[in-house]
Nucleic acid binder design. Structure first.
Lengths: 349, 349
DNA sequence: AGATTATTTTTAAACGTTAATTCAAACGCT
DNA sequence: AGCGTTTGAATTAACGTTTAAAAATAATCT
């Protein structure tokens, strides 16, 4: 039923070209050890037979796979369809960067709770590993340490952390939190609130919060500011702002006029909650997010947010990892974060 | 600097366990040909050495890779950060289904315009291929035919299509378009509009449009309905509805009271455009989408839409492909689409 | 011509598995 | 004891490459 002609090997080509198999291998790898004429002949025949080198054999012999494994850590609370859009963007840019560098990409989703099997390099399926995850790295810190001790090559997405083994590429969350808060201060806002975890469980969020705090402190605005915890979902943002508004009623301080959210998803929940009140965004209250996910341009009003350069991030992760694989010296990299001004902050454009 | 102890091989274990190397292989593969006691001993030693079988050697010997390649076709117009969220959901479920079946997943983004290299199976890197893309399959129909003729194992996401070679798994777009239109008709809407391509370039959209048409026709509502082309982006939806509203002013027929969008992204653009008018959704005009992307629950009002079961889809794609790989007979599969009722349709819940 | 050197090709040894085949021992039976 | 049968483990070929080393051939120089 299916044609299924036997897959051609280098021996077949050698036979047809009247040379030895090793010459075929050399010719196909453009080795200078084989002269032009035979090289052309071999390559032509290979093309005619639609020959492709067997990657398993090649990898086995070369003891490298030209493959990178991407381990995506999800928050176990999120369901299948709620993967953080930011990761998707990263996935896209990592894929492209890998392809450009001649590497294939193996993708694996890992649940933080699972006993994740990072055995890709152990089993020679990948030359190195990219760890990409939001949130609580402490759970698997010991695992990462194990990777390190095994001599596995890996790069971690996130902030450099002395307590954390391995090299990392990340975006400067402190500066991002600082910059966007400064932006709001410059627009004349005075009573701030931050929504998003400030605890240790989410290092990114904590850094953003610290940047936020720093900006407020330097303008003597920190005293009166509010903070409410929320994980990175729309619902959490919705709930958090609800609680804050209720508290504000019974509170002397009154309502904030600017809300800094630790993620766009949270900000979307905040916008939805505020829409059910008499408060107008941005006139009565400014709202800003973080991540610049695809839909943030299309909320009402369009969300002012902080962008992490995912394209650069992917390229950096891949190039750093490839350097590590070839045992070059590698260093942590902290990318700057950029404020994207839209309408939810009330800036006049 | 790095410990870098030599990677253990099955010979090392054999030596330590005092058995032959082949016995080690058998023991680790739980072959009944080796007795319980030696098996345990071998497995214990393997664990202690943190031994992992070399996949390249294993694959080479077994002539299969236990790896599936996922080729994601993107619309070349979309930029990195705008990957269709639907694909992300699919990616997640495909990854999980692969893992559950003991397969690894190799991911590759392909630009429709590129000369895509589907040589994963040729080079024994993957046992089969999943083709996942929205939109115009005609461009690469010849390529797919080539896959078929080479005896490559692959499954295509999309509607079964006699003109299209290979087996497919898809969601019933006709039924989805029909069902959601019926839902609106049942709610008493009478003047319909469809936004989304009705042409051949987007087979999914066309099928949805045909379902829409069929539902209207059977209630004698088709005559007065409108249609406007739009690709699957928020902006396209925004522009399309703007044009339609302008036309409606000069038109006797007047405004529609129900808008069926070919995707959620389009519907989001429509919602944004309507928010700038005096028209209230859903009171004056109902809007429904298609895909049930993550944010559609959080638009204002929350979007009524059609859900494709991505979890099932991923499982089906993977299981179908695995069947094909083991040369079992496989058939096209058309999954039912489900209407998700929220607020934008005006249903009283 | 004979000796060197440069070029091209072949031979053969890995790479680390799996699995068919072979071998050896132990057991049950007449 | 002798003979088949079962069981457990060892030998030994693959699998399709790459590459070091050897060998053959051609080119260059006394």
């Amino acid at each position: 039923m299916v044609p299924m002609k036997e897959k051609a090997t280098s021996f077949d080509i050698a036979h047809l070209a009247g040379v030895s198999q090793s010459t075929v291998s050399r010719a196909l790898n453009n080795s200078p050890l084989v002269n032009q004429e035979t090289r052309d002949r071999v390559q032509r025949i290979a093309r005619e037979l639609n020959y492709k080198v067997d990657k398993n054999a090649s990898n086995l012999r070369k003891q490298k796979s030209s493959t990178i494994a991407l381990l995506l850590f999800e928050d176990p609370t999120s369901d299948d369809s709620m993967i953080n859009p930011f990761f998707l963007a990263m996935l896209g840019s990592i894929t492209r960067a890998c392809a450009a560098a001649g590497y294939d990409l193996l993708v694996s989703f890992q649940n933080l709770e699972d006993d994740w099997h990072a055995e890709y390099e152990d089993s020679n399926k990948a030359d190195g590993i990219i760890l990409l995850g939001y949130g609580d790295y402490t759970d698997y810190r010991s695992k990462v340490a194990q990777l390190e001790s095994q001599g596995t090559h890996f790069v971690r997405w996130g902030a450099p952390d002395a307590a954390h083994p391995g090299v990392s590429v990340g975006c400067d969350n402190f500066q991002g939190g600082y910059s966007i808060t400064e932006h709001l201060i410059a627009l004349g806002r005075t009573r701030f609130a931050f929504i998003g975890d400030s605890g240790n469980e989410a290092p990114e969020f904590m850094a953003r919060f610290q940047g936020y705090t720093e900006a407020l402190t330097s303008h003597n605005l920190y005293e009166s500011s509010l903070q409410s915890d929320a994980v990175s979902t729309e619902e959490a943002g919705f709930d958090a702002i609800q609680g804050m508004l209720n508290d504000a009623k019974t509170n002397e301080a009154g309502l904030p006029d600017a809300i800094v959210c630790a993620s766009d998803l949270i900000a979307m929940g905040v916008l939805r909650a505020l829409r059910q009140t008499a408060l107008k965004v941005p006139d009565d209250i400014a709202v800003v997010g973080y991540d610049n996910i695809a839909v943030s341009a299309f909320t009402t009003p369009a969300l002012t947010t902080v962008q992490q350069n995912t394209k650069l991030a992917g390229e950096l992760l891949v190039s750093t990892l490839i350097k590590a694989i070839s045992n070059e010296k590698v260093e942590d990299f902290l990318m700057p974060a950029e404020v994207i001004i839209r309408h939810s902050c009330g800036a006049k454009t």
